[in-house]
Structures are given as C-alpha cells and as structure tokens.
Amino acid sequence: MSFQIDFKGEKVIQATEQQTILDAALAAGIPHYHACGGKGECTTCRVLVLEGKEQLSELTSYERSIIAALGLPDNMRLACQSKVRGDGVKVHRLIKDDTDHYIFTNGDEEGITEVMGVRRKLALFFIDIRNFTPFIESHLPFDVIHIMRRIFTLLRNAIEQYEGRIIDTAGDGLYAVFGLEARIRSAAESAVLAGLKILEDVKIFNNTYMRPYFSHSFEVGIGVHVGKVIYGNVGIGLNNNLTVMGYPVNIAARLQAATKEVNNSFVISEQAYALLRNPPYAAGSAHLNLKGVTRAFEVKLIGKPYQHAHVPVPEKV
C-alpha cells in the first residue's frame, strides 16, 4: 500500500509503508539533503510537518535524541526516520540547496573588532527589500523568517566580498559602510560593485528559488553616498557592533528611500559617482529635494526601473 506526501511548493509523491520520507523523496527525484547518508546522525533531512502529523510513524530513538538536544518543535521530523501510515501528509523541506545547508549548519556570526571613536570618510550604503509585505501576509512565519535569512545571506556575501561592513539591520533593510580599511575612492567603487552584484544576485534568486518554490519575486532599492562620519563602539554591551554617525548617513538613507520616487533601483549621489574611475552606465540623473537639505541634491540613476511599480522620473529642478 502507498500513500501520498505533498512536498509544499514542489510536488506530490507516493510513499510505501516500507519507505521513509527520505527514500520516497529521492525515488521521486527530489534532491533531498541527507549528509549522514540517512542514518539519523544529522538533521539535514529534517522536514516541517504542516499537515497529517498523526499519519506518521512514531518518533525513533534517533529523533528523540536530536529533538531533545536541539529543542526542535514537535512538528519537525527527520525524513530518514519517518514513515507514512496514511494520506493527508504535507511537509516542507527545509534544506533545498547549498545555501540552505550553510544557513542551517554554519550560521554563527563572526565577531568584529572593536573600534573606538574615529572620524573618517566612508561610503554609506543603504538597501531595502521591495515586495516583502505581500510575502509576509501570504506565507507561514517559518517561510518569512527563512526567506529573510536567505536574502540577508545574499546581501551579506556581496557586501563582504567587496570588504564592506554591515552596521545595522531594520525590518527588511540594512545599512553598511565601505572604506574602514581603504581610501574613499576605493570605498565608493566597492560600494557600487557590491550593489550591482546584489541586483544581479536578487534576479538569479528570484528565477531559481523564489518563483519556483513560492511564486513570488523581490526587488531592492539601494542608496549610496560618501562623506566624513564618526564610527566607534558606543559601549552599551549589546552586540559589540560598530555605530556610524553623521549627516552623510542621513543623506544615504534618504537616497535609498528616493529609489521609489525616481523609479530606479540604485541611486548614487553625484559626489560618490564622481569618485568612480570606471563608472557604470547611468540611465539618467535627477535633482531631489531631500529632507534637511536646503538645495536640490543631484544623483545618478545606475539601477533599473522597478517591475512592480512605475513612477515617472521627476524633472530636474
């Protein structure tokens, strides 16, 4: 006798009473991770049971030990140990590729060196994820947090590849700086290269992961500016993170927010753009009226128009 297993966002497969969920998934062509070879000695094959928990076999001793050690929820099962005893089982495979594997097994953050009270010219980089609210409203809490972690891993990899440092995250956005150990010209170029890489990586992520598994896609808005700021550790004992303060930080944040106004995913100040030895193609320029800035602020548009909302580019003033 065989029963159906619905792998959320992937396919519905058949499993016999003798097969584990892992065996059935592999037989059906689902590339289910099982680092230990399906021996119950790791957790890479774990699945979140969304429906039909009562239709699964009893927890094995391996599962009990791992659940107790890691404090996993009671609807988490090891696919290599669980067998189906009836229809109506729906599961969510947690680790779908190498990036997922890294997140779930090597996600510890590295410590950062404490830096005390320095004034320095830096490139300020703000990024915000577009189209995230609709995703939050229509998906499970696990999906929301997991996808957020996926995207932030993507952002972090690009930023760190070009020697940037993430300073803070807020909601579905983050703030980074470039130039802690480089001159301002190199810092500006690194910030732009990181931003362009993120735009391409998000496009690939949408095509290979978000659309196939979640029928959704994201866009981002990036703002970059340069200027002299103060950075250091404020010493309140939270995460030992750097704090960066100054007027240019506010400008960079407002440029990121202005990406909606100018309908372009990457807005860079004219000051930062002028530092680039090999500047990327600019679709145009604009003069923005930014809060706290007395005169119109000139920027270059080096990203792409948004796909989900088209807003006319304001005329120069």
Rank of each mutant, 00 (worst) to 15 (best):
D6E: 14
L78W: 14
A69M: 09
T133G: 02
E315C: 02
H225M: 14
C45L: 12
G237R: 00
C80D: 12
G38C: 11
S269I: 01
I268W: 07
D87F: 02
I145P: 06
I67R: 11
A35Y: 01
R149C: 07
V311A: 06
A272R: 05
A272Q: 02
E270W: 07
A188R: 06
P134V: 00
Q55E: 15
A191S: 02
G29P: 14
T169C: 13
I198S: 04
I302K: 06
S65A: 12
L288D: 06
N131F: 10
E137H: 03
L255G: 00
A252I: 00
A286D: 07
G37C: 10
V313Y: 00
I112M: 09
S61R: 15
K260N: 14
S65C: 06
F125W: 06
N239T: 10
N75C: 02
D6H: 12
S186D: 12
L122G: 03
Q19I: 10
N207H: 09
R156S: 15
H92P: 12
N157H: 09
E181Q: 15
G173T: 07
M76I: 15
R295P: 08
R149D: 09
A27Q: 11
A191E: 00
Y213R: 06
H225D: 15
F152E: 12
E189R: 01
G71Q: 08
L72Q: 04
H287R: 05
C42M: 10
A286T: 00
L276V: 04
I112E: 12
E63H: 08
K83V: 08
I21Y: 08
G88M: 07
G227H: 02
F218M: 01
N157P: 03
A176Q: 09
F178H: 07
G284W: 06
T243Q: 02
A25T: 00
Y247C: 10
A257D: 11
S65L: 10
T208R: 04
A253S: 08
G246V: 04
G29T: 03
G40V: 12
R149K: 15
L174C: 10
K203I: 12
N278D: 09
V249L: 08
G107L: 05
A24S: 07
L94P: 07
L276D: 03
T43A: 15
P73S: 10
G117Q: 14
D98L: 11
P212H: 12
S57P: 14
A286C: 13
S215E: 13
